[in-house]
Write a protein that binds this DNA or RNA. Structure first.
Length: 216
DNA sequence: ACCTGTTTATTGCTCG
DNA sequence: CGAGCAATAAACAGGT
């Protein structure tokens, strides 16, 4: 909070680093999605079934620790449980379960909004019935990728295979991205809860076309 | 005015 | 050590 006395020049100088990752080229930007985001979800956080809240959440004492979940994970869980939520409902869900976020603190809410915006895992839906804001839902159900990632986690050796796919087979990336995008808007089943997620019925082809994923 | 959503910047941490 | 990511902060625009 305090240390924000940076000159504008410094700001402009900085902004190259991590941004280029998902802006500069289509395939690479999607590769990162496959590469780390799903990996995180599968790898660490989502235990077999409903372990739900970490021990902290159950009946946590005043000095609640920060949950070992990233914001995307928290949001994802909220959305998996509820399908579609408004931003404020997501706030509610998180603060209900994690006393750490009980405080009416603008910081973590800002982070939640930030994550919703920048993370392709989340998809902005229709406007909420009343008030400002939209309904948010999970974009990629990763129905194919989750098991895939599990394997990778289990056997580290296969990491090379994974890399090879991403680097050597752009088409795979394109198709995966199409699958992800399509999965987000086609009725599908949630891997963990079994919830059916209905959104706009759009064909994979259409998604591919509209996203400009067909290059040849 | 407030809430929501987007974007940019910065910092800290992890990993190769 | 550099690159990349998560978290955080903040500015800004649009909607109600």
């Amino acid at each position: 909070m305090a240390s924000k006395t940076v000159s504008d020049k410094a700001k402009w100088r900085r902004r190259k680093g991590s941004k280029t990752v998902y802006e500069d080229n289509d395939c690479a930007s999607l590769a990162w999605l496959l590469n780390f985001r799903l990996d995180e979800f599968v790898n660490v956080k989502v235990p077999d079934d409903e372990q739900e809240e970490p021990k902290v959440a159950a009946d946590s004492p005043p000095a609640a620790k920060k949950p070992p979940y990233t914001y995307p994970e928290l949001i994802e869980r909220a959305l998996r449980e509820n399908g579609e939520l408004t931003v404020s409902a997501i706030y509610q869900w998180i603060s209900d379960r994690f006393p750490y976020y009980k405080a009416n603190d603008e910081r973590w809410k800002n982070s939640v909004r930030h994550n919703l915006s920048i993370n392709p895992h989340f998809r902005k839906g229709a406007r909420a019935s009343q008030g400002a804001g939209h309904l948010w839902s999970l974009a990629a159900n990763a129905i194919d990728l989750l098991p895939l990632r599990n394997q990778f986690v289990e056997t580290e050796k296969t990491e090379e295979v994974q890399e090879a796919q991403i680097i050597e087979c752009p088409k795979v990336i394109v198709l995966d991205e199409a699958a992800i995008a399509a999965a987000s808007i086609i009725p599908d089943q949630d891997l963990f809860t079994g919830n059916t997620m209905f959104l706009n019925p759009v064909s994979t082809e259409q998604v591919v076309r509209e996203c400009g994923l067909i290059t040849m």
